[in-house]
Simulated assay, not measured.
Amino acid sequence: MTKYSLALRFKTLMSSLLLASSMAVAGSASADEPLKIGFAHVSPIGDAGWTYQHDLGRKAIEEKFGDKIQVKYIESVPEGAEAERVIRDLASSGNKLIFGTSFGFMNPMVKVAKAFPETYFEHATGYKTEANLGNYNARFYEGRYLSGIIAGSMTKSNTLGYVAAFPIPEVVMGINAYIRGAQSVNPKAEVKVVWVNAWFDPGREREATVALIDQGADIITHHTDSTAVVSAAEEKGKYSIGYNSDMSKYGPKYQLTAVTHHWEQFYIDQVQQVLDKTWKPTSIWGGVKEGMIGLSPLNPAVPKEVADKVEQAKADMIAGKLHPFAGPVVDQDGKERVAAGSNISDEDLSKMDYYVKGIQGKLPK
């Protein structure tokens, strides 16, 4: 063997060793890299409301996991094509766990999940899953029923106002649960609904609130994201029931309570599962019992006997003794939807497309 051959073999051996060493270092660095997490939100975070509550979940995982994770969030993402672009960008930027927090993100997330099979996706309020896409939701209707007890007890006009976003099952079941809670203590109570066809539009939400008050509603609630309803009711001297988060700073005198959402533990659990490499797609639907739904502190204007009724209903709900849609459930046309002695199924809840007795007007199709 020539000196040239020996030198060449030595050079090749050293190159191989250096390559192996660099790969080992790279592998070690990769193992130490933080888990990149992305959030796509339909509205601004603000200081109250739907997106604000999800952002509390973001803060909870940052506090829990520290430098093990790196989080990016994008606010005010329109539903539809723009949502797909944003979610795809989050995935292509290396985020390995992506949360989309609006119903209208569902189909875009399904499409992007198929294109990025090594990334984990979680969609809020939807129903579709893939091998790498799960969904999560809260039983908002349970909180609606409880707040309905307060509204039904305290209304003087027997007309309750409801500002609603879109006529999808999530919103419809909340309206229906609200009047059922109200009528459990006041059979004369009725609900008027104004649809604003937006999740976040403070101007239209305010206009809808004023319109409902002009139509005789003396307690207003909403299934929209901003604080405009509570603020407008406060200005008009009418009681309100907030939604998503405690909005009492916008209604210090007249907010009676708020139906609150709590996502922190869910987000912590999902991040932990990804870090532990145990994540699997699931469909989670948690309510009062699981701590995902609650009520904010009651206004002192709420009488003790009313507060006691709410607490008893909450305890019965947790114990499985009370379901907001326990039969008989009759729609506004008199058709029985749930028979006496039975509860509505989750499948039927997820497809709810009718108003129950006590709702004025027709449900938009």
Score class of each variant (00 low, 15 high):
residue 15 S to I: 14
residue 22 S to V: 14
residue 34 P to V: 02
residue 48 A to Q: 09
residue 52 Y to A: 06
residue 55 D to K: 02
residue 58 R to T: 08
residue 64 K to W: 01
residue 65 F to C: 06
residue 67 D to F: 05
residue 72 K to R: 13
residue 74 I to D: 05
residue 75 E to T: 04
residue 83 A to M: 07
residue 89 D to L: 05
residue 101 T to I: 10
residue 115 A to Q: 15
residue 117 P to T: 14
residue 126 G to K: 12
residue 135 N to H: 12
residue 139 R to Q: 12
residue 139 R to E: 07
residue 140 F to P: 00
residue 141 Y to I: 05
residue 143 G to V: 03
residue 147 S to K: 07
residue 156 K to D: 15
residue 160 L to F: 02
residue 172 V to G: 05
residue 172 V to F: 09
residue 190 E to C: 01
residue 195 W to T: 00
residue 196 V to Q: 09
residue 200 F to K: 08
residue 200 F to E: 07
residue 229 V to A: 03
residue 233 A to M: 03
residue 235 E to K: 13
residue 239 Y to E: 09
residue 249 K to W: 04
residue 264 E to K: 15
residue 276 D to Y: 02
residue 276 D to C: 04
residue 277 K to A: 14
residue 282 T to L: 13
residue 289 K to I: 00
residue 289 K to F: 04
residue 295 L to V: 04
residue 296 S to D: 02
residue 299 N to D: 15
residue 299 N to L: 07
residue 301 A to L: 10
residue 301 A to D: 14
residue 303 P to F: 08
residue 316 D to W: 10
residue 321 K to A: 11
residue 324 P to D: 03
residue 327 G to Q: 07
residue 335 K to A: 08
residue 342 S to I: 10
residue 354 Y to L: 02
residue 354 Y to Q: 04
residue 360 Q to N: 12
residue 364 P to N: 08
